[in-house]
Structure formats: structure tokens, C-alpha cells
Amino acid sequence: MDKKSKIIIGILIILVISLIAVNVFLTPSSVKSNENHTITDMANRSLTVPESVSKVVSTSPPITTILYMIAPDKLGGMNFQWTSDELKYVPSQYQNYPNIGGWYGTQTGNYEQFLATEPEIIFDSVDESGEVSDVEDRQKKFGSIPDVAVYDDTNITTMNSPIEFVGKVVGEESKAKELNEFNEKNINKVESVAKNIPDSERKKVYYAESTDGLSTDPSGSVHGQLIDLCGGKNVADIGNSNSSSSVQVSIEQVIKWNPDIIITTDSEFYNGVYNNSKWSNIKAVKNHQVYLSPSSPYKWFDRPVGANMIMGVPWTAKVIYPDKFKDINLKDETHEFYKEFYHIDLSDDQVTELLKNSGLNETNM
């Protein structure tokens, strides 16, 4: 082989090596995607988690709801099954999440189902007590997959922290920030008005639960917190406000309270209340002031208590005090929230229908 040929071959070898090097630097490598880092979760536990995350699940509906809002393409499963009505507000690409249960009120979690989704991270919930024994037990069964504890905040005004934390762990800080900013905007607007409503002018509100409407949550309960936040007076001044369970009441007690407004999350109660003689003499019923919380794909008002209630803040304000909150355009708020956080771009007619079905007149939207 002559000298010229050797030089050409040498140049070709250098070019091939250069191309390989460029490809290595420009293409995400398996080494990069598998890099880990250490975090401190919201129960103050140190855990090693992947730097880049593509699949996560949660043991608790409130955290799953946050994940759906900020990272739907990374969510590997739901804790429940959406109904056919709820699926109308879910884009087709997100309608087939497997139902893997969870460990919360129903305790329907199945370790095999969780592991079958092949998650890189599992999010678990801890309450204000900080008790982590259940989380530690589940961590043992999840093996090497980190079970990251998130504070399951039930207060709509302090929910920013878990949203921000989850967003950081899954690499969606920007979307989490958008969600928090939407929440803060409406909370600030509502609180600035509600604090100036004299006690004598506060409307009396009853939260009707169950099909007969005779379960409720007392004033101060997290389940009725949107009433308090928006300046309403929860008439149910009974029971333990720290309890997560509703309180049974009689129709005679509701008649005695005689609320100006009734809010419910139960469609069966809502659809029958105006034709029910037992309720006919109550002020809210006589004045056609009964409202059904929108519930697709999640309830706006309650159960679960979580980020799904963010859209419930402006809705509840308009329900109780439409005149005091004229500067809230509920149609615009609904369209923005569904587009940005439920990932579906509703038409004007769809937004109007959603709000009308809740009992609102179009002039109060």
C-alpha cells in the first residue's frame, strides 16, 4: 500500500471516529437517562430517584390528580375508574390509564398492579402528623422503586408546596408553577372581597351530601372549606370540624337553618330537590338557589380534597356572591383551566353547558 493510500485511509478512520463522537454527544445516552440523584421527600426521608423520569404512579387520588394536571404523559395509572360522563372531558390519549387502586379511604391498592406499570417513582401520601410507617412498609414491597412521600395538603390556600415538590421531582417545574399561579390568582381575588363582607351580610350556605341531602360537613371542615374561603356562612355549626367524616342531620334541622344557598356534589339529590315537598319551603329551594358542583373529570368542590378544588374557588364565589364577584369571568377561567390542566380545549358551548348544568344562570357566569 502506497503512502497516498495510507493517508486516505487514515483520514477516513478519523472521520468515522468523529461521526461516532458527535452522535454520542448529541444523542441522549442510556447512561444519562439512568443517572440518579438524592432528594429529601416531604416526610424528610432521603431517597435516590432517577434524574430523568418518564413513568410515575401514586397511591393517593389527590397526588394522582396533580400528576394528571402537570404530567399526564408520565402518569402510569389511576386510583379509580373514570365514569362515562367524566371521560367526555378527558382526551382520548388519556382515557385508558389502568385502574391500580391505592391506599387511602378504600385501601384497594394491589402491589402487583402497581409494579406492572413499571414506574420509576411511586408517590405516596403523608398527612400533617408526619407518620411514615405505612410508607416504609410499602417501600419494602415496592423494592428498589423509590416510594416518595408527599404531604397530602387538604387546605386549598396552602397547596402550593406539594404541587411544587411533585413538579420538581417529575421535571415539570414550569407546569407546576402555572398551576400554583392560577390558584393564587383566584384565592387572592376571593379573599380580598370576602374579608370585607360584614357578618350580617354573609349568605347562609348548606352543603348537601348523599342522595337525600341529609349528610353534611360542619363549618371549619376541609370538605366545606370553599364556603368559608368565599365568605359564606356554613349553617352546619355542629359536629367535629376536624373529622373527615360527614355528619347526619334531619330535614327539620335544615329547615330550621333555612339556608340561602345549597351546594351539593350529588347529582341525584340535585335532580330531585325541586320536586321534593320536604325541601320546598327552604329559602334556597324556593329561590332556585341550589347548585351542583361540576364533576368532570374531577369534582370542583370536594371529595377528593385536593388540586381539583382549584377550579372550585371561582365557581363557589360566583355561586354565593355573583354580584360581588362580577370581575371573575367564569367562562374564561373554566376554558383556561381545562385547556392548561385538563388538557382539553373546550368550545364556548361546552363551557356554557358545563356551567349551566351546575345551576348557574348565564348572566352570572
Rank of each mutant, 00 (worst) to 15 (best):
K32S: 12
G77C: 06
N34F: 07
S54F: 02
I39A: 12
V49R: 03
V53E: 05
E51L: 05
P61F: 09
Y68W: 06
G101V: 02
I100N: 06
M69Y: 11
M42R: 08
Y97E: 04
W82L: 13
T59V: 07
P50N: 10
Q95C: 01
T64M: 11
P61Y: 08
K32H: 10
T65N: 12
D41H: 08
T65S: 13
G77S: 04
G102K: 07
V57Y: 04
S52F: 13
Q81H: 00
V57E: 01
G76Y: 03
N44S: 15
N79E: 12
N99A: 06
D85K: 05
N36G: 08
T83S: 14
K88R: 09
K74A: 04
Q93L: 05
A43L: 10
P61M: 08
N44Q: 13
S33T: 14
P98T: 01
E86V: 02
S92H: 05
Q93M: 09
L87W: 00
K32F: 13
M78I: 00
M69P: 07
H37C: 10
W82N: 07
I100H: 06
M42T: 09
S58H: 09
P91K: 00
L75V: 05
T65L: 11
L87R: 02
L75A: 03
M42D: 08
Y68D: 06
I63R: 04
